[in-house]
Simulated assay, not measured.
Amino acid sequence: MLEGLPPNGASHVMRVDAPEGEARAIAEFLGESFDPAEVATSAFEIENRAEGSGWAVEVYFGEEPDEDMVRELVAIVSPAAAAAAAFSTLDRKDWVAASLEGLAPVAVGPFIVHGSHDRGAVGPNRIGIEIEAALAFGTGHHGTTKGCLAAIVAFGKKRRPAHTLDIGTGTGVLAMAAARLFHEPVVASDIDRVAVATARVNAQANHAAAPIHFLHAPGLSNGVFRRRGPYDLVLANILLAPLKLIARPLARLVAPGGTVVLSGLLPSHANAALAAYRAQGLYLVRRRTIEGWVTLELTADAGRPHRR
């Protein structure tokens, strides 16, 4: 998933509470200011017992950050937030648990993504997806994940996919959503072995493991992708650079008339992603912007022959 995985050992984190608009702006600005391979950012709604709901920003660093420099960057968006920012160090086993504290359940269509502390929030006729503290990040609170969940719901209103592919599965939340909604086979891959192991455990806990084939694979060259395709629905919630790199092999895996969902894109990156996939015969159907992140829904030309 986009939100990333902090490094082995300790994680350095900056956290600050801020109004919703400032929180989103801070997360986006810091996300653009650092290497995404070294820094993971998230803005999310929190439960503030004294004042009701609020928002927070958390930024995880692979190395101990220069606190003065980070505060200067935050101050460009909000001087008040820069002054209030707090820095700390978390053990690897604790960092996700800390990030989940106070997170409200996320509702998208029939899906309710929640932690174990909010199991009671899943009402009748809803699909609960429980994401507990683990070693991969992806709780459903990020705008990219919400955009992909919305795209899954929209696809389901038209038809049921015979096969779904989730590239960059992270905690497995999108793979589980597709498996629980459609009850059809899903292939879920990730470049990170820890993410794959975590996603598999999450799927078992959510009674969604049976339809999902988990795969540790960088890129799409593994023969499993071809053998289990073609795919009517492809979900790729990663980043612009890898999205562009996999455009050609991904297009070869899409069934005629299939849907491809691309996310992990800032508004300034969306056109570059569209150009890469348009060159492979995939065309824009819908563009969603949620919390400053863009999700693109593309369709394969039903008239072209599928290339095995």
Rank of each mutant, 00 (worst) to 15 (best):
Gly156Ile: 05
Ala98Leu: 12
Thr169Glu: 03
Ile129Pro: 10
Leu174Asn: 01
His216Cys: 08
Ala50Gln: 15
Glu64Phe: 04
Asp190Tyr: 11
Arg160Glu: 08
Gly115Ser: 09
Leu253Ser: 06
Leu296Arg: 03
Leu90Gln: 12
Lys158Arg: 15
Ile238Gln: 09
Ile212Gln: 14
Leu135Arg: 13
Arg126Glu: 14
Leu90Val: 08
Leu265Trp: 04
Tyr277Phe: 13
Leu149Lys: 04
Gly62Asn: 07
Ala107Ser: 12
Ile131Gly: 07
Pro230Gly: 11
His216Ser: 06
Glu47Leu: 11
Ile112His: 01
Asn206Tyr: 13
Gly54Gln: 01
Asp166Gln: 11
Pro211His: 14
Gly172Leu: 04
Glu51Tyr: 15
Arg226Lys: 14
Pro267Lys: 01
Leu239Asp: 05
Tyr283Ile: 00
Phe29Arg: 15
Glu51Lys: 15
Phe61Ile: 06
Ala23Tyr: 14
Ser33Trp: 14
Arg15His: 07
Gly303Leu: 09
Ala84Arg: 09
Ala275Arg: 10
Asn125Ala: 13
Arg288Ser: 09
Glu51Arg: 15
Met1Asp: 05
Arg248Gly: 03
Ala188Glu: 03
Gly292Trp: 12
Gly170Pro: 13
Ser268Asp: 02
Val201His: 10
Pro6Arg: 08
Thr299Asn: 06
Ala40Asn: 13
Cys148Lys: 03
Thr41Ala: 14
Leu266Cys: 00
Gly21Ile: 13
Ala80Tyr: 04
Gly52Glu: 09
Thr139Trp: 07
Gly168Lys: 05
Asn222Ala: 14
Gly140Glu: 08
Arg200Phe: 07
Ile167Ala: 07
Ile112Met: 14
Glu72Asn: 11
Ala154Trp: 05
Ile290Cys: 02
Leu296Thr: 04
Ala205Glu: 15
Phe137Arg: 07
Ala276His: 00
Cys148Asp: 00
His114Ile: 01
Ala75Gln: 04
Ala162Asp: 10
Val261Thr: 02
Ile129Asp: 04
Ala121Cys: 04
Val187Gly: 04
Leu90Arg: 13
Asp232Trp: 14
Arg160Asp: 09
Asp301Trp: 09
Trp55Arg: 09
Lys157Trp: 11
Asp166Ser: 09
Arg252Trp: 11
Ala56Lys: 14
Glu51Met: 12
Thr295Ile: 01
Ala175Phe: 02
Glu58Asp: 13
Gly102Ile: 06
Asp17Gly: 06
Glu132Asp: 15
Ala133Phe: 11
Ala75Arg: 08
Thr164Ile: 08
Pro7Leu: 03
Leu149Pro: 01
Ala279Glu: 11
Ala251Gln: 10
Gly303Phe: 04
Pro256Val: 02
Pro230Ala: 12
Val70Leu: 03
Ala236Leu: 08
Ala81Ile: 02
Ala104Trp: 07
Ala255Leu: 10
Val106His: 05
Met176Ile: 05
Val70Glu: 02
Ala134Cys: 15
Arg159Met: 08
Leu262Lys: 01
His207Arg: 15
Gly9Glu: 08
Glu38Gly: 10
Leu103Glu: 13
Glu101Thr: 14
Ile290Phe: 00
Thr299Cys: 10
Ala276Glu: 00
